[in-house]
Amino acid sequence: MFEAVLSNGSTLKKIFEGIKDLCTDVNFDVSSEGIKLQAMDSSHVSLVSLELHTDVFEQFRCDRDSMTLGLNMKSVTQIFKICGNDDSVTMRAEDEGETLEFTFEKGEDRVSTFELKLMDIDSEHLGIPDTEYQCNVKLPCSEYQRICRDMAGFGDNMTIDCQKGGVTFSVDGEVGKGKIFLKHQPNVEEKHKVIVTVKEGVELDFALRYLNNFAKAAPLSDHVQLGLNSDTPLSVRFDIEDKATLGSLKFFLAPKIKE
């Protein structure tokens, strides 16, 4: 049997909202270590990797070595509309069961339950190498969200140029060119902090459609962390409630290759 209780149900709601437009169906891989999810978008340009450690849950039980729960994202996000912001959520599945039961509770006054039919999803697991990035940028999620949204008005691609001292986001579109520079700002109040760590400068082009899609996970944490290496996928990481110990939602995006 699998049973997990999360007092802050909105965390799961935000995770699903963050990935629902990228992936149609996903597998929840449950083990005694927690929940993992790995899925590609339908064009195989990006990859979502979720890790929820048991620390994020008030209660966590998985009797088998592993269980795979196939979820349709549209249905899950529909179910999570039932979940109020202050609700706790309990997920429960029998060992050979065909459903995942969600229970949303606020105190004992209001209890909602929905049994979701599980799907059999054929998914390929890719090996994500442990990468040390040449450039790491930590910036407020609201800033990331705003840059991606504003730049999408001018073009389809955005160049991220990370150098010592700061990071420049630029777009070159039909109506003209624009850029936004964020300075390395370690000594300001936490919510405005921008930390740019550079071993060697990196400049890469990415599709804004995907960068904007990842921004839907912004409510999950205050800061987002970008990892860049030459000619490798960009890593966009949201730590759950800004605590890596609880887990993270990571997106990887393949770069545009210059012709």
């Binding site: 590609m40 340009v45 990859l47 890719l126 190498p129 389809d156 996928p233 012709e259």
Partner: peptide, 14 residues
């Protein structure tokens, strides 16, 4: 704007 690479060309099967 360059050619979009596939994520599968970077992350192979484990």
């Amino acid at each position: 704007g360059g050619t979009q690479a596939s994520i599968m060309s970077f992350f192979g099967k484990p």
